[in-house]
Design a protein around this nucleic acid. Structure first.
Length: 298
DNA sequence: CGGCTTTGACCTGCGC
DNA sequence: GCGCAGGTCAAAGCCG
């Protein structure tokens, strides 16, 4: 933003110089005409500078509001998670895994780290299994494949139709590293077929920079699930970073922030270029600069 | 040919 | 102990 203002003042200077040179080569009448034009262009530039500042302020306000909303969402999510964890019914252990019993689905994706389930599960020798995270992904209901692109490489090892849900549940293991014990269960919600419930168990013991970032190696194709991964990213951004997917989420956060920044820059550039006044002023300044660099006509 | 998915069989945990 | 339901195994088939 500041660079744009600096550039504009520089262009303003060039414009006045160029116009000054032009005015010396013309008659007195045209000189007066030119000075009028210069004044109007200067006024236009002043107006642009003001608008520039106004847009800068708007951008700043917008960013502040965005941050506030993000914090509010984070607080709400953590509150919901703590409430849900305390209300586990004393039913059979497997029935407690019912995906929609105490979790709520937000429009695109919801992530929930169910530490309460962790305590309810019997402590086995493998503590890796104790980390359970649920993710709700809104997908196309017509898409029958239970493949959710999350950046990791998964190998399907089973599928089962469960009692409380006519939709089959798919079982996946992380196939990136043989030692990685992370598993995930994917099942469509019985209530809303467009929502896929993904349950992650355990933590990745490998560095996932290979599989999560590079789309060539990860299972992020150019296909229909591209929207899903972006939704996942946007949702995870608003959640406190858990231990389950730390680096990936941080990277997503960074990339999202960078993406937002570029979107804003593009919007600003777009609004500026759409302004006919700005275009005209820019054209005059450029022509002035060209005339200054080229030898004056004799 | 290797990796992946599919799918029926088998294992395991839990309630009665 | 039995039955049920979830979870896992492994052979067969598919695909690049």
């Amino acid at each position: 933003m500041e660079s744009i203002a600096t550039e504009q003042s520089s262009l303003s200077l060039d414009l006045s110089v160029g116009c000054h040179w032009l005015s010396n080569t013309k008659t007195i009448d045209s000189k007066q005409e030119r000075s009028k034009e210069v004044r109007s262009l200067k006024a236009e530039l002043n107006r642009m500078n003001e608008e520039n500042e106004r847009l800068s302020e708007m951008l700043h306000t917008m960013y502040e509001k965005y941050s506030t909303l993000q914090n509010q969402l984070t607080d709400m999510m953590s509150e919901t998670a703590s409430e849900g964890g305390g209300s586990a019914s004393p039913e059979r252990k497997r029935k407690r895994e019912s995906p929609r019993s105490h979790n709520e689905v937000v429009p695109n994706v919801t992530m929930e780290s169910t530490s309460s389930d962790e305590s309810l599960k019997p402590l086995k020798d493998d503590q890796v299994k104790s980390k359970i995270t649920k993710v709700y992904v809104r997908t196309d209901p017509s898409d029958s494949s239970l493949i959710v692109k999350d950046g990791y490489q998964w190998r399907k090892y089973g599928q089962k139709v469960t009692r409380d849900n006519p939709c089959p549940r798919a079982y996946f293991r992380c196939s990136f590293a043989p030692t990685c014990q992370v598993k995930k269960k994917v099942q469509r919600s019985a209530e809303d077929q467009s929502v896929v419930v993904v349950t992650y168990e355990g933590e990745h013991t490998h560095t996932h920079t290979h599989s999560s970032i590079s789309s060539s190696q990860s299972n992020i194709p150019n296909g229909k699930n591209n929207g899903i991964i972006s939704n996942f990213v946007s949702a995870s951004k608003s959640k406190p970073v858990s231990n389950d997917l730390p680096s990936k989420k941080k990277l997503c956060l960074e990339s999202k922030s960078s993406e937002l920044h570029w979107q804003l820059v593009e919007q600003m550039a777009s609004s500026l270029t759409k302004d006919p006044g700005f275009t005209a002023a820019l054209a005059s300044a450029i022509s002035g600069k060209i005339l200054r660099h080229s030898p004056p006509p004799s």
